[in-house]
Protein backbone atom coordinates (compact mmCIF):
# COMPACT_ATOMS: atom_id res chain seq x y z
CA UNK A 1 0.00 0.00 0.00
CA UNK A 2 1.33 3.41 -0.93
CA UNK A 3 1.23 5.26 2.33
CA UNK A 4 1.56 8.85 1.14
CA UNK A 5 -0.86 11.29 2.73
CA UNK A 6 -2.37 11.85 -0.67
CA UNK A 7 -3.09 8.18 -1.20
CA UNK A 8 -4.44 7.64 2.26
CA UNK A 9 -6.84 10.57 1.91
CA UNK A 10 -7.98 9.36 -1.50
CA UNK A 11 -8.45 5.90 0.00
CA UNK A 12 -10.63 7.23 2.80
CA UNK A 13 -12.81 9.04 0.30
CA UNK A 14 -13.23 5.72 -1.50
CA UNK A 15 -14.25 4.11 1.78
CA UNK A 16 -11.15 1.97 1.95
CA UNK A 17 -11.08 0.70 5.53
CA UNK A 18 -7.34 0.11 5.64
CA UNK A 19 -6.62 3.59 4.36
CA UNK A 20 -8.87 5.07 7.04
CA UNK A 21 -7.21 2.98 9.75
CA UNK A 22 -3.76 4.05 8.58
CA UNK A 23 -4.65 7.69 8.25
CA UNK A 24 -5.99 7.63 11.80
CA UNK A 25 -2.74 6.09 13.08
CA UNK A 26 -0.61 8.66 11.31
CA UNK A 27 -2.65 11.59 12.48
CA UNK A 28 -2.86 10.19 15.99
CA UNK A 29 0.92 9.79 16.03
CA UNK A 30 1.27 13.36 14.84
CA UNK A 31 3.49 12.18 12.00
CA UNK A 32 5.08 15.09 10.12
CA UNK A 33 2.50 16.48 7.72
CA UNK A 34 -0.55 15.64 9.82
CA UNK A 35 -1.73 19.21 10.10
CA UNK A 36 -1.53 19.73 6.36
CA UNK A 37 -3.45 16.49 5.85
CA UNK A 38 -6.19 17.54 8.27
CA UNK A 39 -6.29 20.93 6.68
CA UNK A 40 -6.90 19.30 3.31
CA UNK A 41 -9.82 17.23 4.47
CA UNK A 42 -11.42 19.80 6.74
CA UNK A 43 -13.69 21.38 4.16
CA UNK A 44 -15.14 17.99 3.31
CA UNK A 45 -16.17 17.20 6.86
CA UNK A 46 -19.03 18.32 9.05
CA UNK A 47 -21.84 16.17 7.77
CA UNK A 48 -21.67 13.36 10.33
CA UNK A 49 -23.61 13.63 13.57
CA UNK A 50 -21.32 13.16 16.51
CA UNK A 51 -22.70 11.70 19.73
CA UNK A 52 -20.53 11.81 22.86
CA UNK A 53 -21.15 9.01 25.34
CA UNK A 54 -19.80 9.37 28.82
CA UNK A 55 -20.62 8.25 32.34
CA UNK A 56 -19.24 6.34 35.25
CA UNK A 57 -16.92 3.37 34.72
CA UNK A 58 -18.80 0.14 34.12
CA UNK A 59 -22.17 1.80 33.58
CA UNK A 60 -22.52 -0.07 30.31
CA UNK A 61 -21.40 2.54 27.79
CA UNK A 62 -19.74 0.06 25.46
CA UNK A 63 -22.60 -2.45 25.67
CA UNK A 64 -25.04 0.35 24.96
CA UNK A 65 -22.89 1.68 22.13
CA UNK A 66 -23.03 -1.75 20.56
CA UNK A 67 -26.80 -2.01 20.96
CA UNK A 68 -27.35 1.49 19.59
CA UNK A 69 -25.11 0.74 16.64
CA UNK A 70 -27.21 -2.28 15.70
CA UNK A 71 -30.29 -0.10 15.85
CA UNK A 72 -28.70 2.64 13.74
CA UNK A 73 -27.54 0.12 11.14
CA UNK A 74 -31.06 -1.33 10.97
CA UNK A 75 -32.26 2.16 10.14
CA UNK A 76 -29.91 2.30 7.19
CA UNK A 77 -27.28 4.54 8.79
CA UNK A 78 -23.54 3.92 8.88
CA UNK A 79 -21.66 4.19 12.15
CA UNK A 80 -18.15 5.05 13.29
CA UNK A 81 -17.17 4.35 16.89
CA UNK A 82 -14.26 5.88 18.77
CA UNK A 83 -13.73 4.18 22.13
CA UNK A 84 -11.32 6.06 24.36
CA UNK A 85 -9.60 4.52 27.39
CA UNK A 86 -6.88 5.98 29.59
CA UNK A 87 -3.18 5.40 29.05
CA UNK A 88 -1.20 4.36 32.06
CA UNK A 89 0.75 7.39 33.28
CA UNK A 90 3.57 5.11 34.37
CA UNK A 91 4.21 2.88 31.40
CA UNK A 92 2.52 4.96 28.70
CA UNK A 93 0.77 1.77 27.63
CA UNK A 94 -2.97 1.23 27.62
CA UNK A 95 -5.45 -1.59 27.85
CA UNK A 96 -8.22 -0.81 25.40
CA UNK A 97 -11.07 -3.09 26.38
CA UNK A 98 -14.24 -1.48 25.08
CA UNK A 99 -14.35 -3.85 22.13
CA UNK A 100 -15.00 -6.71 24.54
CA UNK A 101 -18.63 -5.55 24.65
CA UNK A 102 -18.99 -4.92 20.93
CA UNK A 103 -18.21 -8.31 19.43
CA UNK A 104 -21.57 -8.53 17.71
CA UNK A 105 -20.71 -5.65 15.41
CA UNK A 106 -17.09 -6.45 14.54
CA UNK A 107 -18.03 -7.59 11.09
CA UNK A 108 -21.20 -5.62 10.51
CA UNK A 109 -20.87 -3.79 7.21
CA UNK A 110 -21.05 -0.06 7.75
CA UNK A 111 -19.43 -0.18 11.20
CA UNK A 112 -15.90 1.00 11.90
CA UNK A 113 -14.56 0.76 15.46
CA UNK A 114 -11.39 2.41 16.63
CA UNK A 115 -9.97 2.17 20.14
CA UNK A 116 -7.94 5.13 21.25
CA UNK A 117 -5.70 5.72 24.24
CA UNK A 118 -5.51 9.08 25.98
CA UNK A 119 -1.70 9.08 25.65
CA UNK A 120 -1.29 11.78 28.26
CA UNK A 121 -1.51 14.32 25.51
CA UNK A 122 -1.51 17.48 27.58
CA UNK A 123 -4.94 18.56 26.46
CA UNK A 124 -4.17 17.14 23.07
CA UNK A 125 -6.54 14.23 23.44
CA UNK A 126 -9.39 16.49 22.56
CA UNK A 127 -7.76 17.54 19.33
CA UNK A 128 -6.71 14.02 18.43
CA UNK A 129 -10.26 12.77 19.01
CA UNK A 130 -11.63 15.60 16.87
CA UNK A 131 -9.22 14.62 14.12
CA UNK A 132 -10.28 10.98 14.21
CA UNK A 133 -13.94 12.07 14.11
CA UNK A 134 -13.18 14.08 10.97
CA UNK A 135 -11.48 11.16 9.29
CA UNK A 136 -14.52 8.96 9.93
CA UNK A 137 -16.70 11.80 8.73
CA UNK A 138 -14.71 12.00 5.49
CA UNK A 139 -15.11 8.25 5.20
CA UNK A 140 -18.84 8.93 5.01
CA UNK A 141 -20.07 7.72 8.39
CA UNK A 142 -23.52 9.13 9.15
CA UNK A 143 -23.23 8.80 12.90
CA UNK A 144 -20.07 8.86 15.00
CA UNK A 145 -20.26 7.59 18.58
CA UNK A 146 -17.44 8.69 20.88
CA UNK A 147 -17.19 6.75 24.14
CA UNK A 148 -15.11 8.11 27.01
CA UNK A 149 -15.03 7.57 30.74
CA UNK A 150 -16.41 10.73 32.21
CA UNK A 151 -13.97 11.18 35.02
CA UNK A 152 -11.02 13.19 33.77
CA UNK A 153 -11.27 16.76 32.62
CA UNK A 154 -9.70 15.73 29.32
CA UNK A 155 -12.40 13.19 28.66
CA UNK A 156 -15.11 15.70 29.44
CA UNK A 157 -13.50 18.11 26.99
CA UNK A 158 -13.69 15.38 24.37
CA UNK A 159 -17.41 14.78 24.62
CA UNK A 160 -17.97 18.51 24.65
CA UNK A 161 -16.89 18.58 21.05
CA UNK A 162 -19.78 16.28 20.12
CA UNK A 163 -23.06 17.56 18.73
CA UNK A 164 -24.94 15.82 21.47
CA UNK A 165 -23.79 14.41 24.79
CA UNK A 166 -25.30 11.38 26.39
CA UNK A 167 -24.55 10.56 30.02
CA UNK A 168 -24.91 6.93 31.04
CA UNK A 169 -25.47 5.90 34.66
CA UNK A 170 -26.63 2.77 36.40
CA UNK A 171 -28.82 1.97 39.39
CA UNK A 172 -27.50 1.76 42.92
CA UNK A 173 -24.83 4.30 42.33
CA UNK A 174 -25.48 7.23 44.59
CA UNK A 175 -21.91 8.41 44.30
CA UNK A 176 -21.90 7.85 40.56
CA UNK A 177 -24.59 10.42 40.26
CA UNK A 178 -22.60 12.62 42.58
CA UNK A 179 -19.71 12.37 40.14
CA UNK A 180 -21.95 13.41 37.32
CA UNK A 181 -22.74 16.62 39.11
CA UNK A 182 -19.15 17.69 38.87
CA UNK A 183 -18.85 18.93 35.36
CA UNK A 184 -20.77 16.53 33.19
CA UNK A 185 -24.19 17.89 34.00
CA UNK A 186 -23.64 21.17 32.26
CA UNK A 187 -23.02 19.41 29.00
CA UNK A 188 -25.53 16.55 29.09
CA UNK A 189 -28.27 16.60 26.45
CA UNK A 190 -29.61 13.20 27.33
CA UNK A 191 -29.41 10.92 30.37
CA UNK A 192 -29.64 7.17 30.18
CA UNK A 193 -30.04 4.96 33.21
CA UNK A 194 -28.72 1.65 31.93
CA UNK A 195 -29.05 -1.78 33.55
CA UNK A 196 -32.76 -1.19 33.97
CA UNK A 197 -33.04 -4.94 34.42
CA UNK A 198 -31.54 -4.46 37.87
CA UNK A 199 -33.24 -3.16 41.00
CA UNK A 200 -33.12 0.54 41.79
CA UNK A 201 -33.72 2.01 38.34
CA UNK A 202 -36.61 4.21 39.28
CA UNK A 203 -34.69 5.62 42.21
CA UNK A 204 -31.81 6.45 39.91
CA UNK A 205 -34.13 8.18 37.47
CA UNK A 206 -35.73 10.12 40.32
CA UNK A 207 -32.27 11.15 41.58
CA UNK A 208 -31.32 12.55 38.22
CA UNK A 209 -34.63 14.35 37.77
CA UNK A 210 -34.26 15.90 41.21
CA UNK A 211 -30.77 17.03 40.34
CA UNK A 212 -31.91 18.49 37.04
CA UNK A 213 -34.61 20.46 38.78
CA UNK A 214 -32.01 22.13 40.95
CA UNK A 215 -30.11 23.56 38.07
CA UNK A 216 -32.01 24.70 35.07
CA UNK A 217 -29.42 26.66 33.24
CA UNK A 218 -31.24 29.42 31.44
CA UNK A 219 -32.12 28.70 27.86
CA UNK A 220 -31.21 25.04 28.12
CA UNK A 221 -34.16 22.72 27.78
CA UNK A 222 -33.94 20.10 30.48
CA UNK A 223 -32.39 16.88 29.27
CA UNK A 224 -34.63 13.83 28.94
CA UNK A 225 -33.93 10.84 31.18
CA UNK A 226 -34.39 7.42 29.60
CA UNK A 227 -34.04 3.85 30.84
CA UNK A 228 -32.31 1.02 29.00
CA UNK A 229 -31.11 -2.48 29.41
CA UNK A 230 -28.33 -2.65 26.89
CA UNK A 231 -27.85 -6.30 27.76
CA UNK A 232 -31.46 -7.20 26.98
CA UNK A 233 -31.77 -4.66 24.22
CA UNK A 234 -34.61 -2.83 25.94
CA UNK A 235 -35.21 0.89 25.56
CA UNK A 236 -32.43 1.20 23.01
CA UNK A 237 -34.70 2.14 20.11
CA UNK A 238 -36.11 4.94 22.21
CA UNK A 239 -32.65 6.30 22.97
CA UNK A 240 -31.68 6.23 19.32
CA UNK A 241 -34.88 7.97 18.35
CA UNK A 242 -34.29 10.56 21.06
CA UNK A 243 -30.85 11.50 19.81
CA UNK A 244 -31.74 11.39 16.15
CA UNK A 245 -34.74 13.64 16.78
CA UNK A 246 -32.85 15.89 19.13
CA UNK A 247 -32.67 19.40 17.77
CA UNK A 248 -30.65 21.97 19.56
CA UNK A 249 -32.25 25.35 19.19
CA UNK A 250 -30.49 27.61 16.74
CA UNK A 251 -29.13 30.17 19.21
CA UNK A 252 -27.64 27.53 21.42
CA UNK A 253 -26.24 25.65 18.46
CA UNK A 254 -24.51 28.73 17.15
CA UNK A 255 -23.15 29.63 20.54
CA UNK A 256 -21.76 26.12 20.88
CA UNK A 257 -20.24 26.19 17.42
CA UNK A 258 -18.54 29.48 18.15
CA UNK A 259 -17.08 28.24 21.43
CA UNK A 260 -15.88 25.11 19.69
CA UNK A 261 -14.16 26.94 16.87
CA UNK A 262 -12.52 29.31 19.32
CA UNK A 263 -11.32 26.49 21.54
CA UNK A 264 -9.98 24.48 18.66
CA UNK A 265 -7.86 27.34 17.33
CA UNK A 266 -6.56 28.12 20.80
CA UNK A 267 -5.72 24.52 21.56
CA UNK A 268 -3.92 24.01 18.25
CA UNK A 269 -2.00 27.19 18.88
CA UNK A 270 -1.10 26.22 22.43
CA UNK A 271 0.18 22.84 21.30
CA UNK A 272 2.12 24.36 18.45
CA UNK A 273 3.82 26.90 20.65
CA UNK A 274 4.55 24.60 23.57
CA UNK A 275 5.58 21.85 21.18
CA UNK A 276 8.04 24.19 19.49
CA UNK A 277 9.61 25.41 22.69
CA UNK A 278 9.70 21.97 24.25
CA UNK A 279 11.41 20.51 21.21
CA UNK A 280 14.20 23.01 21.49
CA UNK A 281 14.57 22.31 25.17
CA UNK A 282 14.55 18.61 24.67
CA UNK A 283 17.16 18.91 21.98
CA UNK A 284 19.22 20.67 24.55
CA UNK A 285 18.25 17.96 27.03
CA UNK A 286 17.17 20.64 29.41
CA UNK A 287 13.63 19.62 30.02
CA UNK A 288 14.45 16.54 32.10
CA UNK A 289 17.02 18.56 33.95
CA UNK A 290 14.41 21.21 34.72
CA UNK A 291 11.99 18.62 36.03
CA UNK A 292 14.71 17.34 38.32
CA UNK A 293 15.51 20.81 39.52
CA UNK A 294 11.88 21.30 40.50
CA UNK A 295 11.86 17.96 42.29
CA UNK A 296 14.97 18.91 44.21
CA UNK A 297 13.45 22.31 44.91
CA UNK A 298 16.40 24.02 43.29
CA UNK A 299 14.05 25.86 40.98
CA UNK A 300 10.35 26.53 40.75
CA UNK A 301 8.12 25.87 37.72
CA UNK A 302 7.32 29.54 37.25
CA UNK A 303 10.95 30.44 36.87
CA UNK A 304 11.50 27.61 34.44
CA UNK A 305 8.67 28.69 32.17
CA UNK A 306 10.02 32.20 32.27
CA UNK A 307 13.40 30.89 31.18
CA UNK A 308 11.82 28.82 28.43
CA UNK A 309 10.00 31.78 26.96
CA UNK A 310 12.65 34.41 27.52
CA UNK A 311 13.98 34.40 24.01
CA UNK A 312 10.60 35.52 22.75
CA UNK A 313 10.66 38.71 24.77
CA UNK A 314 7.34 37.97 26.31
CA UNK A 315 5.77 39.69 29.30
Amino acid sequence: MNDSWENLIAGVKNRDIRAAARLITRVENRAPGWKEAMSRIYSRTGSARVIGITGSPGAGKSTLTCAMTKELISRGLTVGIIAIDPSSPFSGGALLGDRLRMKEIFETPGVFIRSMATRGMLGGLCQAARDVVRILDLFGKDIILVETVGVGQDEIEVVKTADLVMVVCMPGQGDGIQAIKAGVMEIADLYVVNKADMPGVDEAVADILAMLELSTETGKPSAPVLKTSALKNQGVKEVVTAFLDHRTDEDRRQAKAEIRAREEILSLLAQEVSGYILKQWENENRFCESVNQVLKKQKDPYAIVKEMTQRFNWS
Binding site: S88, S91, G93, L95, L96, R99, F106
Partner: peptide, 10 residues
Protein backbone atom coordinates in the same frame (compact mmCIF):
# COMPACT_ATOMS: atom_id res chain seq x y z
CA UNK B 1 0.28 -2.65 28.68
CA UNK B 2 2.79 -2.36 31.50
CA UNK B 3 5.55 -2.70 28.94
CA UNK B 4 4.21 0.44 27.27
CA UNK B 5 2.16 -0.99 24.42
CA UNK B 6 -1.39 -0.09 23.48
CA UNK B 7 -3.25 -3.35 23.81
CA UNK B 8 -6.62 -3.95 22.22
CA UNK B 9 -8.20 -6.77 24.13
CA UNK B 10 -11.14 -8.61 22.61
Amino acid sequence: RDAGFEVIYT
